[in-house]
């Protein structure tokens, strides 16, 4: 069974998904970051494949990606690292990147390597529904590799239904009309949108991301969805961490509102 199904079967609320950019702050930080996040009780981890031109990302994730590329991160190196990590943890792992990276790697090979390494799902924000359904859906489904689509406040109801039909794993609800890392409070208008989506009773679990950066925003997001996704705030934390393991544990506890032990 896909680890994402396992996760959402046993946990419907307060699912915490943390995004980090692979290769940042150092090339070999991947293993430490994933294992520490797992230890701190994070439910799933989104591993970002650094990209030169990440259109949907704000300055924090862009900056971490640039540094990761300077550090020498590539997709083949990342797969090698993830293979070693997978031997040590069963935490659900998602790969996030841009479609050009997958295209150049070779879509078939990418899917196969994800399966071999034990990746549970993929997010490619610039691969549109139409292209996915026409050309790639079958490949992903055959491999049992899940695929998450995004929805935003502007996504029409009809299209959300389509997203729900094509998504496997969870739907990524973009909290606001924004690139990553933009805002840090949640407005009335956003709550309205969260309520509207909740009322649609979609088949897939929903995680809210973009602008979630504190216990407060996390807790609010959790009221209206199955959980939340945090990226930029976590990257800022690892970027300035003196002791990576300690900082990661502290960060997760501060988000959950629990006390670090």
């Amino acid at each position: 069974m896909n680890r994402l199904d396992q996760l959402f079967q046993k946990k419907e609320k307060e699912v915490l998904n943390i995004y980090f950019t692979a290769g940042y702050p150092t090339l070999d930080a991947t293993e430490t970051i994933i294992l520490e996040l797992d230890k701190a009780g994070v439910d799933l981890i989104e591993v970002g494949m650094p990209y030169s031109d990440p259109l949907a990302d704000g300055p924090t994730i862009q900056g971490s990606g640039q540094q990761a590329l300077v550090n020498g991160m590539t997709v083949p190196i990342l797969f090698e690292q993830l293979k070693r990590v997978r031997e040590q943890t069963e935490v659900p792992l998602i790969l996030m990147g841009y479609f050009n990276q997958v295209m150049q790697y070779g879509i078939g090979k990418f899917i196969q390597d994800c399966v071999d390494v034990g990746i549970d799902g993929v997010i490619l924000p610039d691969l549109p529904l139409f292209e996915y359904e026409s050309y790639y859906k079958k490949l992903f489904e055959k491999a049992g590799l899940y695929f998450s689509f995004l929805i935003t406040p502007q996504t029409s109801e009809e299209r959300i239904r389509k997203v729900d039909e094509l998504t496997k794993g969870f739907i990524y609800m973009v909290s606001n009309s924004a690139i990553t890392g933009a805002k840090n409070t949640i407005s009335e208008k956003q709550i309205e949108y969260f309520n509207r989506i909740q009322a649609m009773e979609l088949n897939n679990p929903r995680l809210i991301g973009f602008g979630i950066s504190s216990h407060e925003t996390y807790a609010t997001a959790c009221q209206y969805a199955n959980g939340a996704i945090i990226g930029s705030a976590f990257i800022r934390t690892v970027g300035k961490a003196e002791n990576l393991s300690e900082s990661i544990a502290d960060f997760v506890h501060s988000i959950r509102g629990t006390v670090s032990v």
């Binding site: 924000p125 549109p128 935003t152 502007q154 996504t155 973009v174």
Partner: peptide, 12 residues
Amino acid sequence: GGAFIPEMLHSN
């Protein structure tokens, strides 16, 4: 060609 855009740009 085509339109490889994130969902945030789709409606526009």
